[in-house]
Design a protein around this nucleic acid. Structure first.
Lengths: 175, 175
DNA sequence: ACCTGAACACCGTTCAAGT
DNA sequence: ACCTGAACACCGTTCAAGT
């Protein structure tokens, strides 16, 4: 149904590959945007999430974001589309978002603070993937260096989030 | 010459606005990609950088990234283009990149470590702007919340970078 | 050096019509 | 429910030609 879809993600190219007239697609999808939304969410099905009984919330988030980054790197042409849509809206995106919030809650972060942390992590994962996807052979740093940049940034963000959670926690207990 | 350029950044629309035939543009620019590269770098001219004699390297970086984020938010339609090109390549981008490296060096970060920090900061600024630019009225969080997310993430990254610099520093001194 | 006319190979989408 | 033919209003780019 969806296939790999290199950069040939055009209505007409898709119709060509399906051996069908271009406008035939409009019997199945309302608009190209809707189709792309579906594809984007489908890709996210491959993102790995920790077992629900996991104690290590930071490790859980690290696993999820690293997996997201890796999955996005497998679909370089789609990456630019994620940021503009704020990381997709489909069922997979929603499910992953809720797991993230659950992990953050286990770390003591809730409400606006949790959503900020969640968004910062997502921006970092997709942004890093977009940055790396744009890298062509000659120009720019090698892929491995960009992956290391992602991992280090992820560590900084998680440390900062944990520190914030700590402050929140010690501020709440006295009440 | 370049103008605001909403989302009407197509060769033919630009030619139309200039009252000229579409192909006339190819006497001035080799390709659309080249034109876009020029526009992207021009926009970066508005990014503010600290005075060269500044002592506070973290504050300097914070100023630069916040200014970058603000400037990008003024050109929402261009934002998606920056990440794929890894933040433009023109003279302005290069100048800003060097100032960032100088500030990082003042904080004790050099070489691969400095480039990683630099890239993480750029990814966060552009990624946050892309995230915010995609936000439409009804759907998604309000703009102010996204700006706060950007600022908090920036703080986390700078704290992490400073900690790394500290470790590097205390490791180097014994030598 | 800078422009035009005409053309090529594309887009997304709609409309009326067929099964 | 699913497809087609034909069309509309677009793209980026090239080529030959004009001043």
């Amino acid at each position: 149904m969806e296939q790999e879809g290199l950069d040939a993600l055009t209505m007409r190219a898709l119709a060509r590959r399906l051996g069908v007239a271009p406008n035939a697609l409009y019997s199945h999808v309302a608009t190209k945007t809707a189709l792309v939304d579906d594809v984007l969410d489908d890709v996210l099905a491959a993102v790995r999430a920790p077992d629900s009984d996991r104690r290590d919330w930071q490790g859980g988030l690290r696993l999820m974001m690293a997996s997201t980054h890796a999955v996005l790197l497998e679909h370089p042409d789609l990456v630019p589309l994620y940021l503009a849509r704020q990381g997709a809206r489909g069922p997979n995106a929603q499910r992953l978002g809720e797991i993230m919030l659950a992990l953050l809650a286990r770390g003591g972060l809730t409400g606006a603070r949790a959503r900020e942390a969640q968004r910062a992590l997502i921006v970092h994962a997709i942004g890093s993937a977009a940055f790396a996807s744009g890298a062509r052979e000659a120009v720019g740093p090698p892929r491995a260096e960009l992956v290391r940049t992602f991992e280090r940034g992820l560590g900084w963000l998680l440390a900062g989030i944990a520190a914030t959670a700590g402050v929140e926690g010690s501020r709440q207990r006295p009440h």
